[in-house]
């Protein structure tokens, strides 16, 4: 088995792009017709496609189309972001567009899990604080946003201003990101003997369904 380097994600910094609205589902983030692919490559250009483009591929008003938000790597969202389908294509598309972290009021569970599996933090903060950050980013698209994952702190500012948000990062997510164990395959593979033991204990698993120990 080849070793996979798993970087520690202690912090993310960069500029932001605000995406407003509650209950933004994964069908909006990446419409199903762009999922007829067998790899995730190239999904970035289809992120929020139907919000960004009209029938003739003409550009619509959308933050991701605006020049001033090109290069942003922190997406600032509202409540229940990423609800709906389990498609990892959604965070994969955002990542390929350039997103390294999301700050929002709340995230749907499967979406947040998929982000974690890609090393993308999903930071939560209050409605007021997220709203203030979205407004600030719109006023100051060049504002630097700094996320300290371990301290659960978001700071941002431009033109010498300095704002701070007391944010929250789920405990397991924080540990996984800061200690570089968010890619769990090798870690769990190392427990293969205990897994086989567990399988043997379960009445519904038949002996013939359990692989031999020799790996």
């Amino acid at each position: 088995m080849s070793d996979v380097e798993i970087p520690e994600v202690d912090s993310v910094s960069g500029t932001g792009v605000p995406i407003r609205g509650n209950d933004i589902d994964t069908d909006q983030i990446i419409p199903a017709r762009f999922m007829k692919v067998v790899t995730f490559d190239g999904l970035g250009e289809f992120a929020f496609f139907d919000q960004r483009f009209g029938d003739d591929d003409d550009q619509k008003d959308h933050p991701m189309n605006e020049e001033r938000f090109q290069g942003a790597n922190v997406m600032v969202v509202n409540a229940n972001f990423g609800c709906g389908s389990s498609r990892e294509h959604a965070p994969q598309a955002l990542k390929r567009w350039g997103i390294d972290a999301l700050i929002g009021e709340s995230f749907a569970e499967i979406f947040a899990g998929n982000c974690l599996a890609l090393g993308i933090p999903t930071i939560t903060a209050s409605t007021e604080e997220v709203g203030a950050l979205q407004a600030y980013v719109e006023e100051h698209p060049d504002a630097e946003i700094a996320i300290d994952v371990d301290r659960e702190l978001v700071t941002y500012g431009a033109d010498g201003e300095d704002h701070a948000i007391d944010a929250a990062v789920d405990t397991a997510q924080r540990t996984a990101l800061t200690e570089g164990v968010w890619d769990t395959t090798a870690l769990m593979k190392s427990n293969a003997d205990a897994v086989r033991e567990k399988a043997r204990e379960l009445p519904y698993v038949e002996d013939g369904q359990i692989p031999d120990a020799a790996d």
């Binding site: 995730f40 498609r87 990892e88 294509h89 994969q92 899990g113 998929n114 890609l118 395959t185 769990m188």
Partner: peptide, 12 residues
């Protein structure tokens, strides 16, 4: 589950 988690389940 998402696709990276499918990888986990397939592998482990």
């Amino acid at each position: 589950i998402g696709t990276s988690q499918i990888r986990d389940v397939l592998a482990t």
